[in-house]
Nucleic acid binder design. Sequence first.
DNA 1: AGGCGTCCGGTTACATTGTAACCATCGGCG
DNA 2: CGCCGATGGTTACAATGTAACCGGACGCCT
Lengths: 149, 149
Amino acid sequence: MSTAHHCDAAARAEQVLARRGARITQLRRDVLRALMREDRPVGAYQLFDQLKARDAASAPPAVYRALDFLVGEGMAHKLQSLNAYVGCACFEHAHDAHFLICRGCNAAEEVPTTAIRKQVDTDAAERGFAVERMVVETVGLCADCKGRA
Amino acid sequence: MSTAHHCDAAARAEQVLARRGARITQLRRDVLRALMREDRPVGAYQLFDQLKARDAASAPPAVYRALDFLVGEGMAHKLQSLNAYVGCACFEHAHDAHFLICRGCNAAEEVPTTAIRKQVDTDAAERGFAVERMVVETVGLCADCKGRA
DNA sequence: AGGCGTCCGGTTACATTGTAACCATCGGCG
DNA sequence: CGCCGATGGTTACAATGTAACCGGACGCCT
């Protein structure tokens, strides 16, 4: 696993944010990079500990604020079933996602939601429900971990 | 809104559990009924406070254990995006669900997942991922709250 | 009936996750 | 320059969830 890919993701994300006119501060950059460096979901306090060790963060609220910013910009997602965050160098401001979360290796693969979103919209429309946000998370075993079982 | 419906739900759930041979203790019954009495998601500590007031629960772990039992039996679901629980007088041991969660009135309507589940299975199969559990939650405004806006 | 093993829940003490509130600072802008 | 909104530092806490240990209840078997 080369780190090049992850650096690229962070760099790409920063470019997108810049083009968008978003304020990229040092803290936000640090959080973004820390997130991207991992290829797994990371807890807010895990991030905090990492950053704290480098004097890059002062206290939990700072980290949560940066995470909220990144999630709002679509550069991170929160995994509700893990209370953890993953990075995502996406070009859309905010977008929903479907995560395949492996309970073997803790990887979380983001996959597109077009078909699911359509079905959710149908379910909602039938009931006059206006969709704002969607959470889709699937827990199980990835191909590798399934094999290793 | 009559309470009859909710009592029926709790009674029905207890019947199903009984037929299944599950151990229905006083605590579990109390938690089940408290859950069913609400028509909204309820936090574990909210339940705890209610039960505590009636001397029906001693401490948080007891409530969490009862909730785990009920979720395992398919008589309750956890809403990951709210950290809250809802009852469900279903006949399946465990089943996934799609929840339409209204941020106006906090109602959570459970709707079937057949179509979504199929798509999730497809997404997963394409990547060799073995699905075990699925979380689908949609946040927005229900018909009533949309109107009231 | 007696003894055994398992399941359940009481209890204590914490761990983890998330936030409210207040203030200092910084950067842009008139 | 002086104002203003956005950002983040700081403190103190709220809310959510759990580990570990124990005793008692219950079913089951002999």
